[in-house]
């Protein structure tokens, strides 16, 4: 085996990646199960009711992690796109195929839980304000990516097109983040910011942090498992193709 030149290319080798995934998998999945159980029970039964929203505030403990995951999975897609376009990283395209549906799920759940929160609190399922619309655009970007990467008979062409879409669509991420500051929206501004203290009681912040960590670990575990499965599947395909080739050679001879 060739020596591995740097970090970027170390896990380009699918074998190396499989070893890493196998080592991390049990930690990720047990961590996810523990954090999610604690966080969901805490959020659903022990966290206090909000002074104006009452019990409905509990939707926050699933809505916010989904919003965070929808954005971070798309950031992952964009990074895969960059690695694939510039460095022709062999795992990046495979990863993009596997991350897309997971991120789309998170975006859909973010929109649905937000809608279930908006109807009792704001008095409407949906409004076309900047935050909601930019997240809907993110969901459609995911759908476009999922369709595009599988659209061509020759996989490399679809992967190239999807990588370009993922990179161009990354413009939506800062728009989602800052929409509540740049324009007035029905959606409230972020409670947790990098610059200031959170405008949230600690008794609500803790369960929120725990469910966020739990869902993040869970999604990491799912993506690692899907990517490992995809590597195994592509190896199986290669072996089958080679054996078919050998057999046809033999029958021709």
């Amino acid at each position: 085996m060739r020596p591995t030149p740097n970090l970027l290319h170390r896990y380009a080798n699918p074998g190396q990646f499989l070893r890493l995934a196998r080592a991390l998998q049990p930690w990720l999945s047990t961590g996810a199960i523990i954090f999610l159980t604690v966080g969901i029970v805490w959020g659903l039964f022990f966290a206090p009711a909000d002074w104006q929203q009452g019990e409905t505030v509990r939707i926050m403990y699933v809505h916010v992690p989904m919003a965070w995951l929808a954005s971070s999975c798309y950031l992952g897609l964009a990074i895969c796109g960059l690695l694939s376009l510039v460095w022709r990283h062999p795992l990046a395209d495979l990863a993009a195929i596997e991350i897309g549906p997971v991120g789309a799920c998170a975006a859909a759940l973010c929109l649905i839980t937000g809608s279930l929160w908006g109807q009792p609190m704001w008095g409407t399922w949906w409004v076309w304000d900047a935050r909601l619309t930019s997240v809907l655009v993110l969901f459609f970007l995911y759908l476009g990516h999922i369709a595009l990467i599988r659209a061509f008979d020759e996989p490399a062409r679809g992967q190239r097109a999807a990588a370009i879409l993922a990179l161009a669509g990354a413009i939506d991420l800062p728009i989602i983040k800052f929409s509540v500051q740049w324009w007035n929206t029905l959606h409230q501004p972020d409670s947790i910011t990098l610059t200031g203290a959170p405008t949230m009681s600690m008794t609500m912040l803790w369960p929120l942090l725990i469910t966020t960590i739990g869902f993040t670990l869970g999604v990491a575990a799912v993506i690692f498992a899907r990517l490992s499965a995809a590597i195994h599947e592509s190896r199986t395909r290669q072996l089958m193709a080679r054996s078919r080739l050998n057999r046809s050679d033999r029958s021709a001879a």
């Binding site: 206090p48 909000d50 505030v57 409407t124 029905l186 409230q188 405008t199 949230m200 609500m204």
Partner: peptide, 11 residues
């Protein structure tokens, strides 16, 4: 429509 702010506080 009611617009609530970003303050979350136990009642």
């Amino acid at each position: 429509l009611a617009k609530h702010d970003e303050t979350y506080m136990p009642k």
